[in-house]
């Protein structure tokens, strides 16, 4: 059974910049199916994410949540249907994949920092080699984001010298350095000790306050209540139910959702 925690960050959320666009579509997934060999992992996924939305995807493990967001930046290939990110449809065309990946940041469960590079080098690698930004400028941007995630003093250390929570904050900063329009979070707090979850959630909340379009696969229901404007429940490779967080938690409609919530919330 998946681990669920209810860590809450106790502070008022500043909602002034959290505006969901009515017209601008960030991600559009239409009738998407995916198979691993003969195993039907994602079935008939339809999901439209507007710019500025904060979406939390929940569900039991093996329900296809991670696979779904990994399809959005084409770490996984889908076999049927369409995925359109920022107006670019994902196909086998490498040019389009590059285009999408430049605009979509991703944060992984196990951080995946580059262990042979310093924190600063981790942050400037992609801006320099993908965007062609001058080194000095890239470093300035990197320091700006390190300050945002509150660890500028670690810039010249190596990932192995940092705690899990610090590593995950660096990973978020690394994605931000590419100035993405959309951020994907793949269980960003699952590999962390409980006392470190908070510092990462804090960073994620402040991102949301800035109006970033976010899709988070997470078991942090407190975060979902505080920040998400929509919660999606997935089971057996399909979207079972979606709703605003309040309604989702207080009044689940589908049997599976009820079962899931009764298991995780006491």
């Amino acid at each position: 059974m998946s681990q669920v925690s209810e860590t809450t960050v106790e502070r008022e959320i500043d909602t002034s910049h959290m505006q969901v666009s009515e017209t601008e579509v960030a991600i559009d997934v239409v009738n998407m199916h995916k198979w691993y060999g003969d195993f039907h992992v994602l079935r008939d996924i339809n999901l439209r994410v507007m710019t500025g939305e904060r979406i939390v995807i929940a569900g039991p493990s093996g329900s296809g949540k991670s696979t779904l967001i990994r399809c959005i930046n084409r770490l996984e290939e889908h076999q049927e249907g369409q995925i359109i990110v920022n107006g670019t449809e994902l196909t086998a065309d490498l040019k389009r994949i590059d285009e999408v990946r430049r605009e979509v940041g991703m944060v992984f469960q196990h951080f995946n920092l580059f262990p042979h590079l310093t924190i600063l080098q981790n942050l400037t690698l992609a801006p320099i080699w993908v965007r062609g930004i001058p080194k000095a400028e890239a470093e300035a941007t990197a320091m700006h984001y390190l300050e945002r995630v509150k660890i500028p003093e670690q810039a010249n250390k190596y990932p192995g010298q940092l705690s899990g929570g610090q590593q995950q904050r660096v990973a978020i900063a690394r994605s931000l350095c590419m100035q993405p329009k959309i951020m994907l979070f793949d269980e960003p707090t699952s590999a962390l000790d409980p006392e470190m979850v908070k510092e990462v959630l804090e960073v994620m909340i402040s991102l949301a306050e800035d109006g970033m379009t976010m899709i988070c696969v997470t078991h942090e229901m407190g975060f979902a209540r505080q920040v998400a404007n929509r919660v999606i429940f997935m089971d057996q490779g399909q979207i079972i139910e979606e709703n605003e967080p309040e309604a989702f938690f207080s009044n689940p409609q589908h049997e599976r959702t009820k079962l899931f919530l009764s298991q995780i919330l006491h």
Partner: peptide, 12 residues
């Protein structure tokens, strides 16, 4: 934005 799946899509 509420949505509830009515039909359960079987694996094919």
């Amino acid at each position: 934005i509420a949505y509830v799946r009515s039909d359960f899509s079987e694996a094919r």
